[in-house]
Design a protein around this nucleic acid. Structure first.
Length: 814
DNA sequence: GCGGCCAGCGCC
DNA sequence: AAAGGGCGCTGGCCGC
């Protein structure tokens, strides 16, 4: 069998493709859209990739009745329109993305495909935002009408938070379907912007979205630009568009939302995911947990934040001085610097260098309008004779010493007066690898030598400057990623974390609250690092008369893993209350002289910490597809030794091995796997590639054989797709169920708080940890609720533990 | 100046 | 032959 694979990129490729599929000899067996927006057409012998834009678009005439509401008659019409439909797509237009500081300028609704009404309350006119009084006075009336409707939104958290902040009107509970989340439930990968999703399904929803959206975008941009607005990605001042331009845009967003949602609702039914979406998780989580968390924000300890900033700046600058001093004690570094200066500026009479020459020789030349010295021939010729003049006339070269000092001035001016930027990996890499001739320990995926923590640490004993670089890097990270971020983005002492419910494939949140450094113990890092690292979580504090309840699942992922794998050996570790990683280490390596009982005298975690640590590195890695090679790298042992760990591990837990095989089998046969909570991971490529090549695609001898008919990179691509998909089929089941357990606990707890009328809510989620904001007076009652529902909302074959503790900040509860 | 990409590092 | 999964943020770099 010969296999041919072509990627179609150009129109001539496309012509080839058309003649290919029109060839009567070619049979198109399977035509299905891949998640990356490519169409794969498989023939027994041939595979062709076709970018989506070449697909034939179904063009049909679509009636569009879009209307701008401005008069009394219009408002009456809007009133009746809203009465007419129980389910309405709803979208707001605003002056920006900050739901607290920017303002709503109008909203649009659509109850029926092809129709849409825009209700403007403000519009851009003659260079300023003008209020449309007759509409503005009716805004609350119409928003209140929407409370009883079932709203369909696209990223509705944004719209309803705007409405809540600006009008105090609560539409959160009215969101019936969020299109983004619906799409995510059915297609967990890929794009999530309304336009892009609509384009991806345009052949089903009835009109050429791509074409229209592009035209619309151009008109809108031109209009905004005409009105003096910015249209860059980071500052898109859409509100500066004329009403005639804004209105159809707003209407079409609502219309499009409705169409896309209608399309995906059919898929939801086909895949039997309605319960999961509407009842068990997605929409309840959105309304009851996600949006309220994003709405309320968390109070910051501004005093601590400010004093930390002051202190850390000092510590960083003192480290910086030490590093630079010891760096320039090395001749190699000075050589590097000289070469860098030389390279920085070209010795031309014009431009920066020419200007430098004028300054160096203090030549008396007139200034140009732009504030530069005029180096025109005429002006230069009037100068008294000298080296500078000769150079500017192109007659001589300057001597190297003079040239260098001119270049150095320019270089320093361009580089904040610093010879080296020690936050630049590029510069440090040149010094360490090219001038100090150190060998890199590893390479990046792109193949360049890596200058990371490991590399820094490996040179610590050898160079004075490296000693401080480790701490410098740690402190820089803390300052820029945490202290500065919270200082710059705080609003009245509050920080608003974002929680993207469609942010990950597994159903975890995509959030900026998930990376806050964990407190470290004495000795794990230098004192100065520890000081700041352990302070970050304490920046978040409770309000007056309130307190946090903090509950963290104990080893949630290992517990879920033991449950899902179905291995009684793994499950029993937790049932016995033994230490998970110690048990794995003992079973895998046959370390029977130790115990996994934390209270035993021969507890492994106490007597042989390293073995336990090793198990931490592979106990979940191996089931997720880690091989001996990668494990060897991680543990710094040979591939052979690591291979033994892999087989020792799998031999110890036979059901685990079976579960891994079963998971792969399911992906191969059905092209998808599901978590026990019901979330689906679509893996069509696994099924497809399995049907074509079989599991032997994992065998390098077979892949070598494929070289006869395929290019190396093509084989690599399908191999990676397949291998990655197989790993996903296992990882997903665990990660996703863990996410559902946390999500559902949050829903359940918020519900009980509400039912009991307690003024308490879930204010943050950090992976396996939920943090609740509760009144001080109710802390004991709330603690019982939290702990109970954390542990019991989702029942597994083993008991989950999630002790609830109280704390006045996000750190000290642990 | 913007925006995309890379590398690096923080978390589970 | 290639060699564990899922994220977000920052700074540097580079092309436009």
């Amino acid at each position: 069998m010969s296999t041919k694979l072509i990627t179609i990129r150009t129109s001539s490729d496309y012509k080839d493709f058309v003649s290919f599929i029109n060839d009567p000899e070619v049979k198109v067996l399977n035509e299905e859209k891949d998640l990356r927006g490519m169409l794969y057409i498989f023939n027994t012998d041939d595979t062709i990739y076709v970018p989506d834009r070449f697909l034939e678009k179904k063009k049909s005439k679509v009636s569009k009745e879009y209307k701008t509401i401005l008069t009394d008659v219009d408002r009456q019409y809007l009133n009746e329109y809203i009465d007419c439909y129980d389910i309405l797509a709803f979208d707001t237009e605003t002056t920006g993305l900050n739901t607290r500081q920017d303002e709503i300028i109008g909203f649009s609704v659509s109850g029926k495909e092809g129709t849409g009404l825009y209700f403007p309350i403000k519009t851009w006119k003659n260079g300023k935002l003008v209020t449309i009084e007759s509409n503005n006075s009716q805004m609350e009336y119409f928003l209140n009408k929407l409370i009883d409707k079932k709203l369909i939104t696209w990223n509705g958290s944004f719209d309803v938070r705007f409405v809540k902040n600006q009008y105090g009107i609560d539409l959160i509970g009215s969101i019936y379907i969020d299109g983004q989340l619906l799409k995510h439930t059915l297609e967990e990968e890929g794009v999530f912007s309304l336009k892009e999703v609509a384009v991806s399904v345009q052949s089903y929803i009835g009109f050429d979205v791509e074409d229209e959206a592009n035209k619309e975008q151009i008109i809108l941009k031109e209009n905004v630009a005409k009105n003096g607005g910015s249209t860059t990605k980071t500052n898109y001042e859409m509100y500066k568009a004329d009403l005639e331009v804004m209105a159809p845009y707003a209407c079409s967003d609502a219309d499009l939302t409705l169409r896309v949602v209608n399309y995906y609702l059919r898929k939801l039914k086909e895949e039997s995911l309605e319960e999961f979406f509407f009842v068990d998780e997605v929409m309840p989580l959105y309304r009851e947990v996600t949006i309220p968390m994003e709405l309320r924000g968390v109070k910051l300890d501004m005093d601590l934040l400010k004093s930390s900033k002051k202190e850390i700046v000092k510590d960083i600058s003192s480290l910086e001085k030490k590093i630079k001093k010891s760096l320039f004690n090395l001749d190699e570094v000075y050589n590097w610097y000289c070469a860098r200066v030389e390279k920085h500026t070209k010795e031309t009479p014009r431009g920066k260098y020419g200007q430098g020459v004028v300054e160096h020789y203090k030549l008396d030349l007139p200034m140009t309008k732009a504030g530069k010295y005029s180096t025109s021939k005429a002006a230069v010729q009037k100068l008294p004779n000298g080296e500078g003049k000769s150079f500017l006339l192109g007659n001589v070269q300057l001597d190297p010493g003079t040239s260098f000092s001119i270049k150095e001035k320019i270089y320093l001016k361009d580089n904040d007066n610093e010879k080296i930027n020690i936050t630049s990996k590029t510069q440090l890499k040149e010094i360490v690898f090219d001038y100090l001739k150190e060998k890199p320990l590893s390479k990046t995926p792109k193949g360049s030598p890596q200058f990371n923590d490991d590399m820094v640490d490996s040179l610590e004993g050898k160079y004075e400057f490296i000693k401080h670089l480790h701490n410098y890097n740690k402190l820089s990270k803390i300052e820029s990623s945490y202290i500065n971020r919270f200082l710059e983005r705080q609003e009245d002492g509050y920080y608003y974390f974002s929680y993207k419910q469609h942010g990950t494939i597994s159903g975890r949140y995509g959030s900026d609250a998930q990376q806050l450094p964990r407190p470290l113990e004495e000795g794990q890092e230098d004192k100065v690092v520890l000081k700041y690292n352990n302070r970050i979580r304490a920046f978040f504090i409770s309000e007056k008369n309130r307190i946090f309840i903090d509950s963290d699942f104990e080893s949630l992922e290992p517990n879920v893993f033991a449950h899902v794998s179905g291995d009684e050996g793994l499950r029993n570790i937790f049932r016995k209350g033994h230490d998970f990683y110690s048990t794995i280490a003992i079973d895998t390596e046959g370390l029977y002289e130790y115990s996994a009982d934390k209270k035993a005298d021969n507890y492994l975690g106490l007597l042989n910490k390293q073995k336990r640590q090793d198990a931490k590195d592979y106990s979940l890695g191996i089931p997720y597809g880690m091989t001996g090679y990668a494990l060897g790298k991680t543990l710094d042992i040979s591939t052979e030794e690591a291979d033994e760990l892999v087989s020792g591990y799998l031999d110890s837990y036979p059901s685990l091995d079976r579960w891994m095989k079963d998971s792969k089998r399911k992906a191969q046969k059905e092209g998808l796997v599901s978590s026990e909570a019901g979330r689906v991971r679509h893996l069509p490529m696994v099924k497809k590639l399995y049907n074509i090549y079989g599991d032997k695609l994992l065998d390098f001898k077979y892949r070598r054989y494929l070289l006869k008919s395929m290019e190396q990179f093509e084989i690599l691509k399908i191999y990676r797709d397949y291998k990655n998909g197989v790993n996903n089929s296992r990882n997903f089941q665990i990660q996703s169920l863990a996410a559902s357990i946390v999500n559902r606990a949050a829903i359940a707890i918020n519900r009980v708080f509400k039912e009991k009328g307690l003024d308490a809510w879930c204010c943050a989620q950090v992976h396996d940890q939920l943090i609740f904001n509760v009144p001080l007076s109710l802390v004991d009652e709330c603690k019982v609720i939290v702990e109970d529902l954390m542990q019991n909302t989702t029942k597994l074959s083993l008991e989950l533990r999630a002790p609830a503790v109280q704390s006045i900040n996000w750190r000290d509860g642990h």
